[in-house]
Design a protein around this nucleic acid. Structure first.
Lengths: 347, 347
DNA sequence: CTGAAAGCGCTTACAG
DNA sequence: CTGAAAGCGCTTACAG
């Protein structure tokens, strides 16, 4: 049987109150007493029972994280980033996996975190007004990552600006016919990132007076296969794009493979820029807009710890982490388009 | 303030003992009483405080999972598989991330799971004898996945047999010069899977009387880049292999890319078979040996729940899940080797 | 600096 | 079928 605080007290010849104070390093414990307690604890191989401690203190020392699909790269990174700082601070992490719109509904209806966590990190999950109110009503601090509610502290990136950077990069290379491989067309969860990225893309095109025909805006479902299919559609156009911005690296890599298989050179015939700087982006030589993923989790965790310490949050912080273009080998300056070559050939 | 069991008792006009019984569906509660309790709980929006409940019951209702790098695909899948069944059974999951040999040491020395979990799932982490004894001494049931200790119940696959299948597939296609891209050469954690896979590979070659020169056994570090580098080494040989077995899909995909960039066709010049059936294997058309990854986590969780229910485990189960060859487009029948072509040209 | 006692919010024999 | 009381293993005023 594992030793309890009473066993330690008995062995050290003091009360359990003193053991508790000594072990936690509180002041007002005589050095010699503390020594005896520490030794007894050592000998008995004592560790405090967290369940009992939590009940007494009235805190769970666990943080709940709501994550859409924790099996996906992006989310595992965010979780890992948060987990690392929370573990250091002595907090456990309780994961809740939400998939689909009804999953979110179920989460907010049942609120499985009630009485279980001291704080909540919501990753990427857009919240309807009533859902936000429900969450706020819990009375436990909430920090969001990837979405900005205006009511909870948040950490995110500027998706529109990042998309602008990616698109401008293509424009600066001389590309004028630009396509977008976007995320999910009818997203039940209504993530905001894909929408914002499209906004940034469009903005540059409009600013430069370039065309933004529907046919150059195709969905890639945030997957390799989706990216490949999208690229197939684009290359089948009479006047295919010479520059493609994919809203995620996975789609970009799928697009690269499709391009290659269809005989289009990257970046010779078509330049591709992705988004994320996924672990594998470097290996594939993908030019992309890097976002700090683990760091978003880590910063969210720190903000939550701060809120926990401060008691009530003053004004909700809103941290926007920087993104940055990483130019690798999938983008290059523009070459004559197929149509231009055809025209030239005819002349 | 959230309602407590006392609030419910007061509102229902019964004792807290009765509330406790009614809410947990225990027998010996009058139907009308139960009705009143349920209604009161409903009105007060009561949920039981798990910390208090756990302390009273003497169980934590949480399972600890020790995972080498939970950010990697394989491990996230195992965790997700276990998590799904544990959540359904009302258990939380506490993750502990071990990286490097000292990380394992630290884990076993400090045993952060003491008094915190009711059971432990160890994923893929080989245990030294003393470490095994330490774990067993905890008195909480342990199930291992990916390693077989003979002392704890385990769920795993037959890595050697699976590798045999992969290698035989190449042999059956007529390949005689076969290479292995293995895992990590000096693995501080001493994972057994890569070793067993090599054993299976070797066994087939020996059985068929084929050569197994050192130069055809190269490390790929379980990464894309490592697989690519390994393939580069292999293709630089005077007499390069026509068939390559990579111990993971990631290495296989890296190898595919390297082959293509070096002008070798897959499977025209070199066939490649991987291991895992990673999420992306299908997209890349990779022939591979599929292992059930999520299922290993799920089965481990079920075994643990069984052990928890049974009290003491009888004889340690040892579940070996089936693997299966998935033939896609990276393997094909053998073509004349470069050397053979050279000889033919000279004749 | 230290201890006795109450309390955290449940569950569980035990008695009735 | 129900309730009073003890107990789970800690922490924390309070008194000394």
């Amino acid at each position: 049987m594992a030793a309890s605080i009473e066993d330690v007290a008995a062995r050290a010849g003091v009360s359990v109150a003193t053991v508790s104070r000594a072990l936690r390093g509180l002041p007002n414990v005589a050095p010699t007493t503390r020594g005896r307690v520490l030794e007894a604890a050592q000998v008995l191989d004592y560790v405090t029972n967290p369940t009992a401690s939590r009940l007494a203190v009235g805190r769970t020392f666990t943080i709940g994280m709501v994550v859409p699909l924790f099996t996906q790269w992006f989310f595992t990174q965010v979780v890992a980033g948060a987990e690392a700082v929370l573990a250091t601070a002595g907090y456990d992490v309780l994961l809740y996996n939400v998939s689909g719109a009804d999953g979110r509904r179920r989460f907010l209806d049942r609120m499985p975190f009630r009485k279980r966590v001291d704080g909540i990190i919501v990753v990427d999950l857009p919240l309807a007004e009533d859902e936000r109110v429900t969450l706020a009503g819990l009375g436990t601090p909430v920090v969001t990552v990837g979405l900005v509610t205006g009511h909870f502290p948040s950490v995110s990136i500027d998706n529109a600006a990042a998309a602008t950077t990616a698109t401008r990069h293509l424009v600066n290379l001389g590309h004028e016919r630009l396509a977008l491989i976007s995320g999910v067309p009818d997203d039940p969860l209504r993530f905001t990132a894909p929408v914002d990225r499209r906004t940034g893309w469009r903005q540059v095109l409009v600013e430069k007076g370039l065309d933004t025909p529907m046919e150059l805006d195709v969905p890639g479902h945030f997957s390799l296969a989706g990216g490949a299919e999208a690229m197939g559609q684009l290359l089948a156009l009479d006047d295919p794009p010479t520059g493609v911005f994919a809203e995620s690296d996975e789609m970009a890599i799928g697009a690269m493979k499709a391009a290659r298989e269809l005989g289009a050179r990257v970046p010779g015939d078509v330049s591709i820029v992705g988004f994320d700087d996924h672990d594998v982006a470097e290996f594939f030589g993908l030019t992309t807009v890097a976002q700090p993923v683990r760091q978003q989790g880590a910063v969210a965790a720190e903000m939550l710890l701060k809120a926990l310490a401060a008691g009530a949050a003053d004004t909700p912080d809103r941290v926007v982490l920087p993104t940055r273009l990483r130019v690798r080998s999938t983008t290059g300056s523009v070459r004559p388009s197929r149509r231009e070559r055809d025209l030239a050939a005819r002349a």
